[in-house]
């Protein structure tokens, strides 16, 4: 068995947005061009036509196409949108749980085994758990940068340990985790840094970005580095949030996965840009994220679920003309070449 490979159709969002690909063509791409990938993940509100009432015809078409290409419906991503009822009415837990139940029923009809949640509180999930158990769908908390694994009550992004406690206390088999590889940050992504320089109106953004990354990688003192950046490029990194996101090192270590090992049901293979490894034509890497160690640990703990590609580099290349936009199809193909190599298929 071992680790399986899949794709979140989020990766092809730009193709879809511009009307160049539909979910049917995306399924075909995954089934035919990724050398053995079998998993599909979607965002309900991005893929399902006429959401939340797609109609029986869609469900039949979806299940037919999935069977046709031999694909497995792995995870459906949902959002609570607690502000949907306007600003003066933040949805309470019961209201959010009802929405979660609605999504569970849709997921069941499409054959999904997992629901991914991000902003839902434990109390909300608890209210939807009886239905999840009845339908046999797991609700998995995504662990997304800058949240981490080894964090608990009162700590920033620290829901993970609280959920672990809840799972172990109740013994539920339908609440778990969905780590996103974005938490295993190695350094800044050159593509992101170039975007910041470009959108700040800087000339020679490519060179300046390379200079930034060189300084970043050479620096051992965060304070000094921050001061250098603010002094050298005050127009570019004037937003504390950008600085925080770019300077923060990994929010989790690969070994941390062992803490939640029995409850990992799916992973996001987040990536921003796949580049050729110098001197190794046809082999690719994601320079800003650690993939080797997390995959090694997942193998050690006997993880047999999916890592779904979640390509997110397109958004920071949309400030230029159409001719400079990312090639999502190629990026995902490269990502699977890398995953295949690291998994050791």
């Amino acid at each position: 068995m071992g680790i399986k490979r899949g794709v979140s159709l989020y990766s092809y969002q730009q193709e879809e947005w511009f009307g160049r690909m539909t979910w049917r063509e995306e399924l075909k791409e995954v089934a035919t061009n990724l050398d053995g990938a079998t998993g599909i993940e979607i965002i309900s509100e991005a893929t399902i036509p006429h959401f939340p009432f797609p109609g029986e015809e869609f469900y039949q078409e979806w299940n037919f196409e999935m069977a046709r290409w031999g694909l497995e419906a792995v995870t459906m991503d949902v959002f609570p949108d607690p502000l949907m009822f306007r600003r003066d009415h933040v949805m309470n837990e019961r209201e959010q749980a009802e929405r979660l139940k609605m999504e569970l029923r849709i997921a069941k009809k499409m054959g999904f085994k997992n629901l991914r949640v991000l902003g839902s509180e434990i109390k909300t999930v608890a209210l939807a758990l009886p239905l999840a158990e009845e339908l046999d769908i797991r609700i998995n908390q995504e662990i997304h940068f800058p949240s981490g694994i080894r964090r608990g009550k009162g700590q920033f992004g620290g829901k993970t340990m609280d959920i672990l406690e809840y799972i172990e206390k109740t013994g539920t088999k339908h609440y778990g985790f969905h780590p996103d590889f974005g938490i295993f940050k190695k350094g800044p992504s050159p593509m992101y840094i170039e975007y910041y320089f470009r959108t700040a109106g800087e000339e020679h953004w490519k060179e300046k970005s390379a200079d930034f990354i060189e300084h970043f990688n050479a620096s051992t003192n965060e304070e000094e580095l921050t001061k250098w950046v603010m002094d050298t490029y005050p127009n570019v990194f004037n937003d504390p949030m950008i600085l925080e996101m770019e300077f923060k090192k990994a929010s989790a270590q690969a070994e941390d996965l062992k803490l939640i090992a029995p409850y990992i049901y799916c992973c996001h293979g987040k990536f921003y840009q796949m580049t050729e490894i110098p001197g190794k034509p046809g082999e690719y890497e994601e320079v800003s994220l650690d993939y080797e160690n997390p995959i090694r640990v997942l193998k050690e703990i006997g993880y047999e679920g999916y890592i779904d590609s979640e390509y997110e580099g397109q958004r920071n290349q949309q400030d230029r003309g159409l001719e400079f936009m990312a090639d999502e199809i190629e990026e995902v193909r490269r990502h699977h070449k890398m995953m295949k190599r690291l998994i050791g298929e």
């Binding site: 879809e16 511009f18 991005a46 006429h50 939340p52 009432f53 306007r86 003066d88």
Partner: peptide
């Protein structure tokens, strides 16, 4: 307005 229905979706794309 506050009472506008919440299930008319403007879908992606």
């Amino acid at each position: 307005k506050d009472d506008f229905p919440t299930d008319f979706y403007w879908l992606f794309g």
